[in-house]
């Protein structure tokens, strides 16, 4: 079974600095593998463990994105493909078309796995767009995937219900974090990952822009919330009484 997993090298929101105007300092901002993409890699590895084959990880990003590919390789993926581009200047349509081109070039794949949403921009649009571009059946928000012969049985987690669905193989899927517990690579695996192959493609070459008009960012700003930061001390009973008193004074507790 050939399995493609898309991982994003996302901006690490905890490390992201804001300038004096409250705008994020994106140049050189530290990145990390988008949180739920670890679940996507894990699910790919579990499918491989059952059905043999190969797990190939794809990222659209700058050279720094190799870090996320290496992390996925350390977890157990076989090889990586870096599609160079600056994802922050792209919209989901462009990212998905670059991923589709790269996946097509090394495909066909039986399963294409994304996560439900990236930790920095969380659009949830790349996976369904990718499925459209690849012409694959698609199941979003999967919390369970089972493949048997030419068909897959999945559970799809929606806001108010869980759907059981059947899809033919090949198919594309996005996973939610509850689907599995991602493994941590060992030190040896991390060292061995350095030897696994990473292929590089140029995004604008494999998927030219054409006459498509991108979603653009006009401005970015933070909205600092103004809080009082009053710390209440004392024994639990004293602290509780003081808190209740303060909240009543604020008029928020009847």
């Amino acid at each position: 079974m050939k399995i493609a997993v898309c991982v994003k090298h996302a901006v690490d929101e905890t490390e992201l600095k804001l300038d004096a105007n409250g705008s994020p300092v994106l140049a050189g901002a530290p990145g990390k593998m988008s949180s739920f993409d670890k679940n996507a890699v894990e699910e790919g590895l579990r499918l491989k463990a059952k059905h043999q084959g190969e797990v190939v990880v794809f990222v659209v990003g700058t050279a720094d994105s190799k870090k996320s590919l290496k992390e996925a390789l350390a977890m157990g993926a076989d090889r990586g493909v870096l599609v160079t581009s600056d994802p922050l200047s792209l919209d989901s349509f462009r990212v998905a078309s670059m991923l589709a081109a790269a996946i097509r070039m090394s495909g066909p794949y039986d399963v294409v796995i994304c996560s439900e949403g990236s930790s920095d921009t969380y659009t949830g649009q790349v996976p369904p767009m990718l499925a459209e571009f690849l012409g694959l059946p698609y199941v979003g928000y999967a919390k369970k995937i089972g493949v048997e012969g030419g068909a897959a049985k999945l559970e799809r987690s929606l806001e108010d219900s869980v759907e059981s669905v059947e899809a033919p193989v090949p198919f594309a899927v996005s996973v939610v974090s509850e689907i599995n517990e991602p493994r941590y690579p060992t030190l040896i695996q991390i060292m061995q990952a350095g030897k696994k192959p990473i292929e590089e493609l140029v995004g604008d070459q494999v998927a030219p822009l054409g006459d498509y008009s991108q979603v653009g960012v006009k401005s970015m700003s933070s909205q600092p919330s103004v809080r009082k930061h009053v710390m209440i001390g004392g024994t639990p009973d004293e602290a509780a009484a003081k808190l209740v008193e303060a909240l009543v004074k604020e008029g928020v507790l009847k």
Binding site: F93, G124, Q125, E132, Y141
Partner: peptide
């Protein structure tokens, strides 16, 4: 609407029509 179903519909529609799709 930016629901799990709505996100998929808008994204697929945008991909089919080759138009931009703003999120959330």
């Amino acid at each position: 609407g930016a629901t799990r179903t709505g996100r998929e519909i808008a994204a697929r529609f945008a991909a089919k029509m080759r138009v931009g799709c703003m999120a959330e």
